[in-house]
Structures are given as C-alpha cells and as structure tokens.
C-alpha cells in the first residue's frame, strides 16, 4: 500500500497549443504515491495530449511537471521512462516485427542497468502475470487487438514504473478480456503502483478508481470522488454536449 500519502507527482499550469487549438489549458493536479486516478472527458478534451506531455512525448507550451521534486517539463521522453513514468498508447504501438519477448526486453535494457538474462527472466514473469506466456516467441503483429493491449501494458511494466499512465486500456476489448484487464489494474494498484487511467468506459473506470478527474475542451472541470463528480452539472453538460458557462 501507499506509504502514508507522500505527494510525488504534480502538474502545474500545464498547457499545450497546436497553432490556434488549445488542446490543454492551464491544467494542474497532483498524485499521491499509490493512488489511482481516473481521467475522463469527451472526445478531443485533451486527455491523450496530457499523457503525451507528462511522459515527455510532447513539449508543453507552458507549465511544470514535477516528478519527485524535479521539474521534467523539458526532459525528453526516454528520461521520463527511465524515471519510471510509463505509458500505454490509445492505439497500441508495439514493435510489430519483433517477438513478444523482444518487445518486453527493450525497455528493460534501455537504461543499461540490467543484464539481458535477468531482463528475459523478468519478461517471462510479466508474461506469466498477463497470461501471455505461450506467445513469447510470436511476432507482436500476430497478436489479437486485446493481446496487443496486454502486451503494451507488459512493456510499460518492464520499466518498473512508479507512475503508470494507461490511455484507453478498455477500448475495443472483448468483454471477457475486459474483466481480465480490470483485474490486472487492480492488482497492480494493490502492489503499490500509482496509476492514471484514461477511458470512456465509465462503468469499468468506476469499478477501479475512487477519484476521478474530468476534462473538457482542454480544461479540468471537476476532480474528486467518482460518485460526486458524476453528479456535477458541469460534467453532465460537458458530456451531453451543451456548452458550459465558462
């Protein structure tokens, strides 16, 4: 479990503009160690852009991203990964013509701290956990959509993440696999992983998180207990498509 709620990740005044589009505007939030946060919002509200920024894939237009005391807003993506900030992609981005095992070994070897043999051992453990063991030597391209999502989760786990950002892990997944992924996320959180979970499947999100943050048109419009937030009129309006007052 979390060790008494030390704040270890905080985002302050984060913005991203693409030309005239304000994809994310003045976003601030903090995460405590061991916490699991649901991040929801209508299409185009800036969720993926937020993940891209807090993993270094996109340079923010403004704002700070503080990971355990140091501002990483201008660090390249691979340094985020090495600091244990790991992610999955909305549409799986695997190394398609590499084997499942190789997909997992890449992150393990990337910081030169681990030997290949121990990395491979750890990868087999992760495959066991994800029930993908029998696919170890398959090419990633040969996996089904759901299996690809699992493998991406595994690849993120190989970074020994302190913070795990999952972009729509439930989207397009077979109901049977959905249960499985939910269980994986729960058990990862039980083991102390801090997780940000982005998805449109509110039901699935509610079964995992207690805190949820809502974005609409690049801005945070609510943050707090799931049940309360979903009653919030601003949130309801954002989802039903009518303009909010601000």
């Amino acid at each position: 479990m979390a060790d008494g709620g030390t704040m270890f990740f905080s985002v302050n005044g984060l913005s991203k503009h693409f030309g005239g589009i304000h994809a994310v505007e003045n976003l601030s939030f903090t995460l405590e160690r061991g916490e699991i946060l649901g991040l929801i919002g209508p299409n185009g509200s800036g969720k993926t852009t937020t993940i891209n920024m807090v993993t270094g894939a996109l340079r923010p237009t403004g704002g700070t991203i503080v990971v355990e005391g140091s501002d990483m807003a201008h660090s390249p993506a691979h340094l985020f990964a090495r600091r244990g900030v790991a992610r999955t992609f909305q549409v799986p981005r695997l190394f398609r013509r590499m084997t499942v095992l190789e997909n997992l070994i890449v992150p393990a070897l990337s910081d030169y701290a681990e030997r290949r043999s121990t990395a491979e051992e750890r990868a087999r453990g992760v495959l066991q956990f994800l029930k993908l063991g029998h696919l170890a030597n398959q090419y990633a391209r040969a996996l089904s959509g759901g299996q690809q999502k699992l493998l991406e989760l595994g690849r993120a786990l190989m970074l020994k993440p302190r913070l795990l950002l999952l972009d729509e892990p439930f989207a397009g997944v077979h109901p049977r696999l959905l249960e499985e992924i939910i269980d994986h996320i729960k058990s990862l959180n039980r083991d102390g992983h801090t997780i940000v979970l982005v998805d449109h499947n509110l039901e699935a999100i509610q079964s995992v998180v207690t805190r949820v943050m809502v974005m609409a048109r690049g801005q945070k419009i609510a943050d707090g207990n799931v049940a309360e937030v979903l009653q919030n009129p601003d949130v309801v309006r954002a989802y039903t498509g009518t303009r909010t007052s601000h």
Binding site: H78, A81, F89, R93, F95, R96, M98, V106, S110
Partner: peptide, 15 residues
C-alpha cells in the same frame, strides 16, 4: 529495430 518499428514507442520505452 525498435526505432525502425516505432520511434515514439521506443522512446517511451526508455530508448
């Protein structure tokens, strides 16, 4: 090979 397959994913994997 990882870079060839997907540079962004390679970076996200710490490469």
């Amino acid at each position: 090979r990882a870079i060839r397959e997907d540079e962004g994913a390679a970076r996200a994997s710490g490469v």
